[in-house]
Design a protein around this nucleic acid. Sequence first.
RNA 1: GGAGAGAUGGCCGAGUGGUCGAAGGCGCACGCCUGCUAAGCGUGUGUACCUCAAAAGGGUACCGAGGGUUCGAAUCCCUCUCUCUCCGCCA
Length: 423
Amino acid sequence: MLDIKFLRENLDRVKERLAARGGSIDWDRFAAIDRERREALVESERLKERKNRLSGEIGKLKKSGGDAAALMKEVETLTEAIRKAEAPLPEIEARFDEFMLSVPNVPHDTVPFGRGADDNPVVRQWGKPPEFDFTPKPHWDIGEELGILDFDRAAKIAGARFVIYHRQGALLERALAAFMLATHTLENGYAEVFPPFIVNTASLTGTGQLPKFADDLFKLEGTDFWLSPTAEVQVTNLYRDETLDAERLPLKHCAWSANFRSEAGSYGKDTRGIIRLHQFQKVELVKFVRPETSYDELESLTRDAESILQKLGLPYRVVTLCTGDLGFGAAKTYDIEVWLPGQNGYKEISSCSNFESFQARRAGIRYRTAGKSRSDYVHTLNGSGLAVGRTLVAVLENYQQKDGTVVVPEALRPYMGGLEKIA
RNA sequence: GGAGAGAUGGCCGAGUGGUCGAAGGCGCACGCCUGCUAAGCGUGUGUACCUCAAAAGGGUACCGAGGGUUCGAAUCCCUCUCUCUCCGCCA
């Protein structure tokens, strides 16, 4: 959510930057709602002020034994007037909130203009795609031949877009998560949390998934429970409606969790393998920082995510999302894309974003500097560090051997009982 | 699931219909005093929104949430949420 004052005072600039995202926003409607809301508020508050004053006088009169009948009569008419003045307010407020909650964040000045994913400039590249003296297989073939990925039984138990890991597959998934958590907690300074996988509407509104993107989520029927699509929701909402001491910032958390996405509208996309599932596991990085440091923090957050790929020896590149590809709440995003031989291309494995105060405003996350009376909104950032399933894909595809086995990256072996090869 | 207790400002804790945004204490900030690892004194100390060119000032709302009674509610009534205790069940 944008700051309403900022929005009013910088309307032209905001319009221009939001237009670069590609969507269209009905600004005339905004102007009308904003004006309507303020007029209704002023009128009802004016009436209430008078009523409060008269009520006080009635109290004094009664105490001193005077006759308050005339005043009480006037208050009666005021009550009716207030009722009338307030009647349209809930509906106006609802429209106002709906509008404010549906306006995306303003892209940062350093975000390049572009229409879509093809316009995302590459920032840097690490590692070289491995060369094979055979045709590298996609991970679903590797996994099924090794008997570690089982799609048929997953479909029987749950449905399409689920997987079951067997034996070293399950171990690899678990080892990757443990390795990522160890790196982020011991080397990168993130405090681990383990959150619920189910969240409520308020939390999803706080981080921006709701109200706009309900279709992407699983809802538990008859409850206010949703399956969380990313631990960004849980971890960011850790401090919802709290004011943090400035000395505690930056606050850095990592969390392993399962994530659930309906993948509505992704028919025919990544249908094979485990690239796009209804459930996947991810280690998430979340930061709460002072506004003036948030872009430096975005750089280091991205580097922290990259460190996992470097330790695993997986080639990747980093791209900046252009205005047309930027997510709803993000002011700036770097995507990390890992090299997948099976697809002969780079595939997103992490998305690192600075939300500035967009989420903090929705979620009421503030910070206060000792001695300063006024609190301000923190800036929130998050990024995957990394998506475990896609990392597993990258390991299988990049470390596959001619004989169908897969070499375990050195860094993972301690987490897999010393296993050197999946055969 | 059953029985009971509770939810007040950064914290503790008063407050059962009127001048309560809320006593008092702690903490914190600023100032004064004091020559000694401290104490004392004074003042101030919530948030959101509206109004105002801005500041000052003014206003509205908020005592877990929502509704109701009343001229007037932190105080009375109803519903809900959460926390705690005991029992049951369970991983």
